[in-house]
Design a protein around this nucleic acid. Structure first.
Lengths: 164, 164
DNA sequence: CCTATATTTCTGTTATAACAGAAATTACAG
DNA sequence: CTGTAATTTCTGTTATAACAGAAATATAGG
């Protein structure tokens, strides 16, 4: 399915294989198993390492590099979130900051346009701040928070719309 | 930037244009402004309507269809989330359910593998349940919740790791 | 009901990204 | 050092998706 997700098939295949593999695997094993070129495996491994979804593990008495995947699903989700943040959100924030700066100095820009750009910027600021903070909370508490679902609203004093 | 995001350039361009447009625009205006083919605009508009990021608005005395974008950034984010859920998450859940079902009946599958598949399935179940519930809470409360950031943890009785 | 205009669908082309295989580089053993 | 095995980088090919233009369909006005 990875092709829909923005990662190419090879990367998704290698990740899936390592995620389900009981033992560490080396590039050749992966290449043989999936029937894709070694160079392709090499690049896929590099990308997965960059995302921190897999890591190298040394095997005593073997020169080849072996890899294992992160198997904790929450940890995996956090790392994907971090990767997407760095690759997608941060550049978007830089871009929109530039846009806002340019729009402010440009008398040809309608005020509504500047306002929408600013709102977008504010949204990105708020949500990334939220993400940064949530990233710091221990996983167990994160899991419990998700488990609560919308009950958090009632547990906080949000009921009557009153400010905290 | 949209090309990185999994949407093609034309769709991203049309969306950006409509998001910043002060007045509704028709297909021809969009085509002229962006310098892309009308057919391309037509398909882009269809996709954006499907994502509910833009909507048709009738202009009295004009046969052509005009479009405006959702300008509320939170609403936009919610609709993108909903779209991704339907297009990416739901199919993934179906796929993994099939995998789990097959793996359970297959004695050749190592127990660790079945366990990992099941954990993944459980994760998706939990997070989509969370999403479904959060989707229902009023936007104002959602905004305040995000504003709290990691303070929610302290406000709930999570401190000592004690169960609710 | 017919005509004009808007819109969508279809088809072919082009651009882009994925991938394979070869070449080059790196790392290690002796 | 030197040779060998492993890995990465480079280059060309192939597959896929984006896009343009033409054809077809639909919609409203007369």
């Amino acid at each position: 399915m990875g092709s829909q997700w923005g990662v190419n098939r090879s990367v998704a295949q290698v990740h899936a294989l390592l995620y389900l593999a009981v033992d560490p695997m080396n590039a050749e094993q992966i290449s043989d198993r999936l029937g894709i070129a070694r160079s392709n495996v090499s690049n896929s491994l590099k990308e997965l390492v960059a995302w921190r979804l897999i890591r190298r593990v040394p095997i005593a008495g073997d020169r080849r590099e072996y890899f294992v995947a992160e198997v904790d699903v929450w940890e995996m989700a956090l790392r994907i979130a971090q990767g997407r943040r760095e690759r997608e959100i941060d550049p978007a924030m830089s871009a929109i900051s530039e846009c806002v700066a340019l729009a402010q100095d440009d008398r040809a820009i309608a005020p509504e346009v500047l306002q929408r750009l600013t709102e977008m910027q504010g949204f990105l600021d708020n949500t990334t701040r939220w993400y940064d903070q949530m990233r710091g909370v221990p996983k167990t508490q994160l899991i419990r928070l998700v488990g609560l679902g919308d009950k958090v609203i009632k547990l906080l004093n949000f009921a009557g719309g009153k400010r905290k």
